[in-house]
Design a protein around this nucleic acid. Structure first.
Ligand code: MN
Ligand code: MN
Ligand code: MN
Ligand code: MN
Lengths: 225, 225
DNA sequence: ATTATAATTTAGGTAAGCCTAATTTTTATT
DNA sequence: AATAAAAATTAGGCTTACCTAAATTATAAT
């Protein structure tokens, strides 16, 4: 019996969705760290969420969790709201892209279906949030997008930025300074042999930026053919 | 030590502020009904809120409660946010004035100082909400407005609507239908002797409306000289 | 294959904010 | 002044979502 779902549970489901996007299961520790709570609390909660009717997720001891289709729908509902809020704040209220994530993390839980509808309409049904993440549509359909990690680009080759990681404001300010944002065209200049640090050139701004491998793995691009 | 204040407590303080606006104290039952909880729970909470350092309110057994200046500041902070949200939803997102109260009741708790600032700026520092209630300014100052109840108008005399009650969507739709809104000019046509029901004429729309005494007491006007 | 380390789970407990039922105090009515 | 009714308080409990510490299970390193 699908009841009202607490804000905490909404965040659990959202995190699990994110961690299992590319297949596999979300681990207890992973979730504990992401949610800023103890592993014991996570175990407790996921056990509970696996025993609802219908269950939000499947839980196997020591094997982590995975959303059921039911749980995934619930997660997508919040993710839609989160991303709509982010793009609305940027487009209509003059926020910068490094400010919106924290704000959306709170507001997503306070958004009524009506507000969701009005914001969606005011932006003419936007397809992407400020960081390039796709916004699930009203039916919670989310487009599959062909994308690879910036790290996998070969030297001399070009690509177009699709999405950047959105949690860390510092990183976003760094990227923004060079014009590394969704839609930007970039070219890989060099990669150091030992630590795989990359130099890339951004076409639009003419800037060159240094990107380490872990950040490079979190930036998605479309490779130029 | 002014800590973070829970959403529940924010609502308590807001209600107490409203009930004590015209002096006096807020009673346990009054609060219980307004908050939709038991009287016992209210007693418990107000006792707690009277023992914080500094206290949010003064509590005397069986005598009801009254906000301290500290508690009043806390209440005004939420009220500012509530009313800013209401006017924003009407001005920028196409809400009607009967839809905004319920929405603001939730969003007020999720609003960051930054969002408050941006919304305030986007509306060019609005002074009133859609129902004519004054919005406390950034320093939480709230203007004293000379106002009387519609009920106290004499037959044949005129006035200008200042504010209407904002909780009940049905009432707001009724008033809206006749054009009874802040700024509207009205004239009292008649008052029945037994139950004090009034007929009023709205200048702008030419409509005539019937208003009972209890509603008439909740509509504020400025009398024409 | 042991053994050490890391991850996870279990056990027991806490704080917020509610509840109902019983009791006390205040207020209103005869 | 006595009594009835209404309002408020106290007592005892419950649920949610956390916590720490201890125990267990899985994984990695010898
Ligand atoms: Mn959140
Ligand atoms: Mn984002
Ligand atoms: Mn509220
Ligand atoms: Mn209002």
């Amino acid at each position: 019996m699908p009841q009202k779902i607490s804000e905490n549970i909404q965040d659990y489901l959202k995190r699990i969705y994110e961690f299992t996007l590319s297949g596999g299961r979300a681990s207890t520790n992973q979730l504990a760290q992401a949610l800023g709570i103890s592993a014991a609390s996570v175990t407790n909660m996921v056990q509970k969420l696996s025993k609802t009717e219908p269950p939000y997720l499947t839980y196997e001891k020591h094997q982590g969790v995975k959303l059921t289709p039911f749980g995934e729908q619930a997660a997508l509902k919040i993710i839609r709201r989160h991303r709509l809020i982010e793009i609305y704040l940027v487009e209509k209220l003059g926020y910068t892209w490094d400010e919106v994530h924290a704000e959306a993390e709170i507001l997503e839980h306070a958004m009524s279906p009506l507000l969701e509808k009005r914001i969606d309409a005011a932006l003419d049904h936007p397809k992407f949030d400020p960081h390039g993440d796709p916004i699930p549509d009203i039916n919670l359909e989310i487009p599959e997008i062909e994308q690879t990690a910036l790290s996998s680009l070969e030297i001399g080759n070009k690509g177009r930025v699709l999405r950047v990681p959105n949690e860390d404001p510092q990183v976003l300010r760094y990227l923004g300074k060079f014009g590394i944002r969704p839609g930007a065209h970039i070219k890989l200049i060099s990669r150091t042999p030992y630590d795989q640090t990359m130099r890339i050139k951004i076409t639009e701004t003419g800037n060159e930026a240094v990107i380490g491998p872990s950040l490079g793995n979190k930036i998605s691009i479309a490779k130029d053919s």
